[in-house]
Structures are given as structure tokens and as C-alpha cells.
């Protein structure tokens, strides 16, 4: 079962890679045509691309190593186990931390969130967890620091944490309100 799932994931990754390569081919062709048509733009375009490439290549391997370490040493099961039984301020803190640590795209987190909901975890914590997973990832913050500077990164991080927590409570409140109104129908 798990093997099958892995194979499916790998097939999906391969398909995505092919799609990306096709897009890359198209965009490369567009660039070549444009640069032939406008020779005076050659230098600025190539210089800019090269600068950004250097900046990325200096950090991407390191970021990938960190992502790989998180993936192996913080398995999803651990996250579900911890988040399922906490509440209060500690719950909020843990939801952010556990969302920020592990890896993978957002769609990996949805099934985990579904399991947690069934287990009876607080809705607010699930929302906070999902949002942290989406936009407070530690490796992401590092890349943000590299490209946008410390002020931008720290400010956005603080604001995101504050508003994500507020959003968690708003959604929990709306869901509960609806449940009370919907009664038996929604409870099923």
C-alpha cells in the first residue's frame, strides 16, 4: 500500500518535471528570439539572470539539505501524534512549530489535517498548522532573508503569525456557529 503510494508520487513528480522542462523550453525560445531581435538588451537580461542564478545557487543546495533532514528526522506521524493531543497556548505554539518544521508541499498537509480533525484536534489549531505549513516554513524564511532582507522577512513573519492565529479562531467560530445552526444535518 505504502509502496504503491510512493510509486504514484514518483510518477506524479516525473510528470511535473516533464511539464516544467516543456515550459522551460518555450521560455528559453522566447528569450532567444527576443535577444536576437533586441541585441542591446542582451547584456542587461543575461547579467540580471546570471546574478539571480548565482544568488540562488549559493543557497538552494543548503536549503534542500535542510528540507531533506526535516523530511527524514521529523516524520509526518510524529507531527500528527503531537498535534492531536495539545490545546491552549501550547497548542497554538506547537501548531506553528510543527507546521514550520516538516517538509513537502501543502497538499501533503491536507490528509494530515483531516486525520487530526477526525481525532478531535481543535479546528483553530488545524488552521494554524496548515497556514504555518504553507508560509512559515523555516527553509522558506531563509530564502526570504536572502532575497528580501531581514526587515522584510521578520516583519512579514511576525504579522503572518499574528493574523494566522486570529484566522484560526475566526474559522473555528464560524464552523461552530454553522454546526449549531445546521444541527443534525451537518453533524453527520
Amino acid at each position: 500500500m505504502k509502496n504503491q503510494l510512493k510509486q504514484k508520487d514518483e510518477r506524479k513528480a516525473k510528470k511535473g518535471m516533464v511539464r516544467d522542462l516543456i515550459i522551460l523550453g518555450i521560455i528559453l525560445a522566447v528569450m532567444v528570439v527576443l535577444l536576437i531581435e533586441f541585441p542591446d538588451k542582451r547584456e542587461p537580461v543575461i547579467d540580471t539572470s546570471w546574478d539571480f542564478f548565482l544568488e540562488m545557487i549559493m543557497i538552494l543546495p543548503a536549503v534542500m539539505v535542510l528540507l531533506g533532514l526535516f523530511a527524514v528526522f521529523v516524520p509526518n506521524e510524529t507531527v500528527v501524534r503531537y498535534l492531536g493531543k495539545t490545546s491552549g497556548l501550547k497548542g497554538i505554539f506547537l501548531a506553528i512549530l510543527l507546521g514550520a518544521l516538516p517538509t513537502g508541499p501543502l497538499y501533503v498537509a491536507f490528509p494530515m489535517a483531516a486525520v487530526l480533525l477526525k481525532k478531535g484536534a481543535r479546528i483553530s489549531n488545524i488552521i494554524i498548522f496548515l497556514s504555518a505549513w504553507a508560509c512559515i516554513k523555516i527553509p522558506q524564511e531563509m530564502v526570504e532573508l536572502q532575497f528580501l532582507g531581514i526587515e522584510f522577512m521578520v516583519m512579514r513573519l511576525i504579522l503572518t503569525v499574528i493574523f494566522v492565529v486570529i484566522m484560526g479562531f475566526i474559522i473555528e467560530w464560524i464552523m461552530k456557529l454553522d454546526d449549531e445552526k445546521g444541527g443534525v444535518k451537518n453533524a453527520v
Binding site: 513528480a13 518535471m17 528559453l28 528569450m31 543575461i46 539571480f52 540562488m56 534542500m64
Partner: peptide
């Protein structure tokens, strides 16, 4: 490796964006 094509796509877009 999986991310590399996307990296090149983005840097070309950035180059064209800032250049043109």
C-alpha cells in the same frame, strides 16, 4: 534536481522582466 527546471524558468523570467 526536481526543482532545477523551475529555477531556470524563474531566472529567465526575472531577466526578461527587468531587461524589457
Amino acid at each position: 534536481i526536481r526543482m532545477l527546471p523551475m529555477v531556470f524558468i524563474i531566472i529567465i523570467i526575472i531577466g526578461l522582466l527587468l531587461g524589457f
